[in-house]
Amino acid sequence: MPIEPTHALKKRIKTLENVIVVEDGEIIEQRLDETMQLINITTKPSNHVALCKETSKMVQLNESTRNSFLSLDIPSNKTFKKPLHLFFIANKKAVVHKTAIHVAENTQFKLFESVTGYGDQTINYVSDTHLEADAQLTYTTLSSGDKSVASAIVRNAALKARAVITYTNGVFTNGTTNQENHVLLNGAAAEGIAKTIALTSDTQETLIKTTVEHLAPKSKGLIEHYGVANDASTLIFEGVGKIHKNMRQSEARQSNKGVVIGAQARLDANPLLLIDEHDVEAGHGAAIGRIDEDQLYYLMSRGLNLREAEKLIINGYVAPLQKIIESETIKEHVNTLLSQKIQ
């Protein structure tokens, strides 16, 4: 099934509060309530220094060929109750975009971000987030788009002391995609949570890499990957928890869960723990395989056909994403993306 056309997506966006829509490098819509107007929004990069430039080719490409930019400066000591919704659409142009987010001391903020591509456009999307001490950011993302759209999406974050970032990424795009999530815990007791839920279909190839680097003591990292590989698609999860020397009492955890539905589909998880310190807690678990025969039998014994039973189980994998999304509009949007992928 083809994906929802731009106008249908834009219609959904109309029903949301606090949105910024960037299409082909231009802001085409911006609606912010009074509280959100406290945020300083610019489209001109000033003294911006890219995170993870040395390690990521995708970031290097972004730096050298960028044609779209947005920065959000969120003031200190504020609790924002409602989320800000960012939509990035590549419609008539290949987009190389960077979003720079700065959350000042002791502020709590929620961000929802959707990256969508149509036709045969390509997307290179990088977001850099800096959290000052005690700042908290709930960062929920969706990627969607046509089969012909290849995308590279990188989200990096650098955290000062006691700052907390919670990423929940929904990967629903139909094209080949390479997505990275890199969290640098620079301040003591900083916490990075990165969950990614990826659904792949057709002959799509998807690589998801999540890294949490512990560069301060008492820092906490959690990586969760959830995957459903359909048809003849390939889905690879790479999760890296890296605790540097002397970063005592840090905690690095990781889990990988997934089901392989398609007869020719492939799902691999490569969890890695790189630890250069004794006084830490670390662990990883993985549960990946075909849907359990007894589970299917149980569901079908109540009258669900095979496809319905599979869909119900697949829905279960998307539950962590649906749980964190507050807006009914976006929940519905996710359901639409899901049903387009899983027929």
């Binding site: 359990d292 589970q295 149980y298 279960g316």
Partner: peptide, 8 residues
């Protein structure tokens, strides 16, 4: 012994 189905 009915099956357990997490997520559903």
């Amino acid at each position: 012994a009915p099956a357990e189905v997490p997520g559903v």
